[in-house]
Design a protein around this nucleic acid. Sequence first.
DNA 1: TTTCGTGCAAAGTGTTTGCAGGCGA
DNA 2: TCGCCTGCAAACACTTTGCACGAAA
Lengths: 142, 142
Amino acid sequence: MVQKQGKENAFTRRGCKNTKSRKAIISLLEKAETPLSAEEIFLQLKEAGVSANLSTVYRNLELMESLGLAGKMVMNDGKARFEITGEGHKHHLICTSCHKMIAIDFCPMESLQKDVIDKTNFDITGHKLELYGVCPECRKTE
Amino acid sequence: MVQKQGKENAFTRRGCKNTKSRKAIISLLEKAETPLSAEEIFLQLKEAGVSANLSTVYRNLELMESLGLAGKMVMNDGKARFEITGEGHKHHLICTSCHKMIAIDFCPMESLQKDVIDKTNFDITGHKLELYGVCPECRKTE
DNA sequence: TTTCGTGCAAAGTGTTTGCAGGCGA
DNA sequence: TCGCCTGCAAACACTTTGCACGAAA
């Protein structure tokens, strides 16, 4: 009756079922270059032939966030976006004109976190950094 | 018919009227220690005896943002907060337990902005940095 | 089989908008 | 006075929730 087999995954390992839509969402997020909104995920699922209801998408994203599999960030447009929780976290540079988003790989906080902890006595658990600007393409056409 | 008098202010200077609610909102934001949500502003106005409709609050905050008088930031709870645009911009450390927010005065981006511009060719116009953690008080009671 | 997950529709939030009347310049 | 500002109510967009059916373990 032991059920520990090689067949485990991020969901079953935590007592959740490994459903079609969950697999599909994880796989989308894994190959996404930028954080995705619930609606984007919903549409991309449909395109991939794994249609899931929008509520299901929201419920699964919430689950994945609580399991620590995905991170949620709300951007200034009021929409939440989600990204896979990888080893190296990323920040983003967002074009205020065309809303293109590109990932930047360095993080100025890594070296400063300790300093802030000392100063504030907070137990720092994470951070969010977004840069805003105008991308080269938009600058041309302006 | 010249109307340039010492009586100018941030609004009239830009062709907008200096109404009671606008004065009150600016003054609230000026003395606020942390960014305020529209609802908080709405309630504090009422308390101060300068009741304004919630739509009016939103409209004025939007105006102030477009005039560059205030900055908007959307936090992970999905609510927008506003703060006065001062000389030295600030970032915030937010307790994920009690949602207390404290301002931190240093900015790691200042020294790095130039570097990012070189790397990405974006015309960087701003950034947002938020730190998350658990404050000393909440850590005690957990 | 049993329990968890899903679709559907309806309800919730925070925010925006159209319109008629009111106030600031 | 004149036109911008405001209050009100309705519309919006995104997200959440209740319920009954369906699928994973």
